Simulated scan of single mutants.
Amino acid sequence: MTLLSAVETAVEPETPPRNRPSAARRVVPYGYLSPTLILIVVLMVVPIVMVIGYSFRDNVIVQENSVFAGLANYSKVLTDPDFLVAIKNTAVFITVSMVAHLALGLAFAMMLNTRLLGGVTKALFRLVYILPWLFTIAVIAVIWRLLVDPAGVLNYVLQTLGLIQEGVDWLGDPSKALWVVTFANIWSGYPFFMISLLAGLQGIPHDLYEAAAVDGANPVQRFLHVTLPQLRPVIISMAVLDLIWTSQQFALIWMMTGGGPLNATEMLSTYTYKQAFSEYEFATASAAAVIVLLLTMVLAFFYVRQQRER
């Protein structure tokens, strides 16, 4: 009896087989996701497919019977001098804005993270620095149009200081309009970078700075070898996002200059809009939109890849 009891104890009891979820239970998660999926399909997938289809046809929307044009619309867009100017202006606009956003955002974030300022002073500076982010694009465009008007505040200050003799038409001068619009975009966008980088700075362990100081590193070396490496994931993510967002900037440019004067501030977004709703060349506008979509997808690919590596 003792041996038989030992054998029965050694044998593990069989676990009951798990019941496989029924077909109805497997469908339940998709039921919860269905409203979002339907919205994505209706509001994103269908319009994108329609625009791609329009880009390969001629006389779309304005005529009932459109004809297949192949790559003619793409060839027309890529050889259009206005489109080439828009690409150059967009490249300058994006590059200067991104570099300035990161530089200003990091500088202000480090100032707000320093221990040299008191709590009240930091709170006041945070309120002032975050104000541009609270305004809508329409308000920002109106503010800057009033500031740079020939009879505006900027010219008044410069004349008072004796730097200019008469009012300058900042948005009417082709050599200055692009830089004014870029500066307005920088002013409206740097608070987001400041907040993100400030959060990154506050997440750096203070022990790293103490260890670097013990090793004899000066403030510049601590910034280069401690701060920047720790902020590298945040900086890369913000830079890629800024490339995507700035390349699609439309409202600020349209409300300030409308792409003028003389195409000085023409961007890919304003070029596409004009082709569709000013020239009524919807096929050409669709081709330009597809090109912008491809460029944005390339940037989005690098962003997703960076996030996966992180």
Rank of each mutant, 00 (worst) to 15 (best):
T2V: 14
L3R: 09
L4C: 09
E8D: 14
E12D: 02
R18A: 14
R20E: 12
S22G: 15
A23K: 07
V27D: 01
G31K: 07
L33A: 10
I38A: 09
I38F: 14
I40A: 08
V41Y: 11
V42Y: 02
L43R: 08
V45F: 00
V45K: 01
V49E: 07
Y54V: 06
F56T: 13
R57F: 07
D58L: 05
V60K: 08
V60H: 05
Q63W: 02
Q63L: 13
G70H: 01
N73M: 13
Y74S: 04
Y74M: 13
Y74W: 12
L78K: 09
V85A: 12
N89G: 05
A91W: 01
V92G: 02
V92I: 15
I94P: 06
T95P: 00
T95A: 15
V96E: 01
H101W: 00
L104F: 03
L104C: 00
G105T: 04
A107F: 11
A107N: 01
F108Q: 02
M110E: 09
M111E: 04
N113Q: 09
N113I: 09
L116G: 03
L116K: 05
L127P: 02
V128C: 14
W133G: 05
A138D: 11
V139S: 12
I143M: 15
L147C: 02
G152R: 04
V153R: 05
L154W: 04
N155Q: 10
V157W: 12
L158M: 14
G162C: 12
I164W: 00
D169I: 09
L171S: 11
L171P: 03
S175G: 05
S188E: 07
S196D: 00
L198F: 05
G200F: 09
L201P: 14
Q202N: 06
Q202C: 10
G203A: 06
P205I: 05
P205Q: 11
P205M: 10
H206K: 15
D207Y: 06
A212V: 04
V214L: 10
D215H: 12
G216S: 10
P219L: 02
V220L: 12
R222W: 01
L224W: 14
V226A: 01
L228W: 10
Q230S: 14
P233T: 12
I236A: 12
I236N: 11
S237K: 06
A239R: 03
W245Q: 10
S247Y: 05
F250D: 03
A251C: 06
L252S: 02
G259H: 05
N263E: 10
M267H: 03
T270P: 05
T272N: 08
T272G: 01
T272E: 08
K274H: 14
Q275V: 04
Q275L: 15
S278P: 00
E279K: 04
Y280M: 15
E281L: 13
F282P: 02
T284G: 06
T284R: 12
A285G: 02
A287S: 03
A287H: 08
A288T: 10
V292E: 11
Y303K: 13
R305H: 13
Q307M: 15
R310Y: 02
